[in-house]
């Protein structure tokens, strides 16, 4: 049972083709990792999954079927897509508001009618931040440590009760201990959400994901064009222990990238 069915996805920024011809099925309630060297388009693909690429003037071709509906279809409201498919960014980006208001921002935006205090508490509990911040909910979110800020951002994302969480290198700005906490958290969240994570860190992909997609850069020597492409997509175990493609093997074993 897949949550996304990506069919022949291509993305261009102006005349520059970032990725082309990507097809993959992303399973529901599992963690899927997108790995690959810089410039391979893994973040570009991730940003297509909730139409964040719209904000960067990208031209998207192909289809992304989410729950049977093409999210790039003509009738689709991008804001609604993003409400269902949450996103956590590379650098922790809490709003310059209180911890409470950071988590309450999304629910308020979407007209949440229930017990907001309870929702904030639940969201903070599910990222294991509640005990650390319950006495200072009115403090600014920006005053927390980097790892805490990132967990706050995850709490903010899940407070709107999305279906999918996209994570764009969520640990790249964090220290190893904070990284481990986020990884633990990702594994816990897996039962409730479908998670797609982009990471530079291969060990991280191996630790947290069930499925791994390896992207690489195709270089067209004639025109000097560099285009991202999906090389191999399989279970994480297979990708890391018995890759079917020599480029994957070279990357995994550290021979390039």
């Amino acid at each position: 049972m897949s949550v996304f069915d990506v069919q022949g996805l291509g993305v261009a920024y102006g005349s520059f083709t970032a990725v082309k011809d990507i097809s993959l099925e992303i399973p529901r309630n599992k963690v899927t990792a997108l790995i690959g060297p810089s410039g391979c388009g893994k973040s570009t693909v991730l940003r297509c999954l909730n139409r964040m690429n719209d904000l960067m003037d990208a031209t998207v071709s192909g289809k992304i079927i989410y729950n049977g509906e093409d999210i790039y279809g003509p009738e689709v409201d991008a804001a609604e897509v993003r409400r269902r498919i949450g996103m956590v960014f590379q650098r922790p980006n809490p709003f310059p508001k209180s911890i409470y208001e950071n988590v309450a921002f999304g629910p308020r935006l979407n007209g949440f009618k229930g017990d907001l205090d309870q929702l904030v508490e639940e969201s903070l509990r599910s990222v294991a931040l509640w005990d650390e911040v319950k006495d200072k909910l009115d403090d600014p979110g920006t005053a927390l440590s980097g790892g805490q800020q990132q967990r706050l951002c995850i709490a903010r994302a899940i407070a709107v009760q999305p279906d999918v969480l996209l994570m764009d290198e969520p640990c790249s700005a964090l220290d190893p201990i904070a990284t481990l906490k986020i990884e633990d958290l990702i594994r816990q969240l897996e039962s409730s959400y479908s998670i797609v994570i982009v990471t530079h860190n291969m060990q991280q992909a191996a630790r947290v994901s069930e499925m791994t997609a390896f992207f690489s850069v195709d270089i067209d020597d004639e025109h000097g064009m560099r285009t991202g492409a999906l090389v191999e997509y399989d279970t994480t175990e297979k990708i890391f222990n018995n890759p079917g493609n020599t480029r994957t093997e070279d990357y995994i074993s550290g021979r390039f990238g």
Binding site: N50, M52, L55, A79, E80, R82, R83, R84, G86, M87, F89, R91, N93, P94, F95, P96, F105, G106, L109, N110, C153, R156, A157, V160
Partner: peptide
């Protein structure tokens, strides 16, 4: 990045501006 955070929560352009 704060504007993107709001977009990712389902905010429209106008809401990002206002909030």
């Amino acid at each position: 990045d704060q504007q993107h955070a709001a977009y990712a929560l389902g905010a429209t352009r106008f809401e990002v501006m206002r909030k």
